[in-house]
Design a protein around this nucleic acid. Structure first.
Length: 270
DNA sequence: CTCCGATCCTGATGGC
DNA sequence: TGCCATCAGGATCGGA
């Protein structure tokens, strides 16, 4: 579910409720997520105060005076701010409870999310090898072109690789490729520097616009207040199989690449 | 190193 | 109505 814009939307919504707040407890109802929630996690953070809430790729890093919580929403996760006494329902694996009386609650039916702890998150195995943040300085089309050298992987899958560029998922990879007029199946190593420059610009634009719209709600994404995103209204190809291309009216094509759907316009994209 | 399929899990949807 | 197959926004792992 949530890609960079959805995680960023969640982060911004949580921010005012967590900064400077003291953590009272962690209530774990279901520890079996993507990785088990460490049983000793609660005692590392209980009583500590939240110093920052940052995002790296699709991870949220909640740093306290006692260490950093790593949160990932997986495919079906969403985080909500709720009064701490709100009765839980199914598929809500944990609450992070604050002295303010609010709690952060994860809802995650598929249990692909994660809650981990680190005192040195920069060097955590899940974060250590990530590529640059697409919305920060330090990368460009030349970087992508260089990293793609000699690789036969499809361009769509290249963009999904967080070790190349962080936080891009299937929706925004497909959308960016439409705007850059590149087919998802193109061999990454045979795409020109000029095309990568174009791609880099569109990636920044698509992600920025998606954040401004509060993310994309296809099925069940909601922000920290339970509200959906609106970027689905701006989607050009994703989920639009057989619908007319917004540029040329040709029906959008859906293909399977590495087991996952990819969408493109066969006239606009080459 | 690189590529790609299998895998974790549940829910929604559509065909018969 | 029920049953079954398919698909879903992630990303690690292991085999080739």
């Amino acid at each position: 579910m949530p890609e960079l814009p959805e995680v960023e939307t969640t982060r911004r919504g949580l921010l005012p409720y967590v900064i400077g707040q003291r953590i009272v407890s962690l209530i774990v109802r279901e520890p079996r997520l993507r990785w088990p929630i460490p049983s000793n996690l609660a005692r590392h953070i209980a009583g500590h105060t939240v110093e920052s809430l940052e995002r790296r790729a699709k991870y949220l890093l909640l740093t306290t005076s006692g260490g950093t919580l790593l949160l990932h929403l997986g495919m079906s996760g969403s985080l909500r701010v709720i009064p701490a006494d709100t009765p839980p329902s199914r598929y809500e694996p944990f609450d992070l409870v604050f002295a303010s009386g609010f709690a952060i609650r994860l809802r995650d039916p598929r249990r692909f999310g994660a809650l981990l702890f680190s005192t040195d998150p920069q060097n955590h195995p899940l974060l250590r090898d990530l590529g640059p943040e697409p919305l920060e300085e330090g990368w460009d089309g030349a970087y992508l072109h260089q990293r793609a050298r000699g690789r036969t992987i499809a361009l769509r899958d290249f963009l999904l690789n967080g070790h190349i560029i962080a936080g891009v998922g299937n929706i925004y990879a497909n959308e960016t490729l439409f705007h850059a007029k590149l087919r998802p199946s193109r061999t990454a190593g045979r795409v020109s520097r000029a095309a990568y420059n174009r791609l880099a610009g569109h990636l920044v634009e698509v992600l920025t616009n998606a954040i401004a719209a509060g993310g994309t709600t296809l099925k069940d994404f909601s922000d920290s207040t339970g509200r959906p995103g609106y970027f689905q209204q701006e989607l050009m190809v994703y989920g639009r199989e057989n619908s007319p291309c917004h540029h040329c009216q040709t029906p959008i094509t859906r293909r399977i690449l590495s087991g996952r759907s990819t969408f493109y316009c066969r006239l606009c994209q080459h």
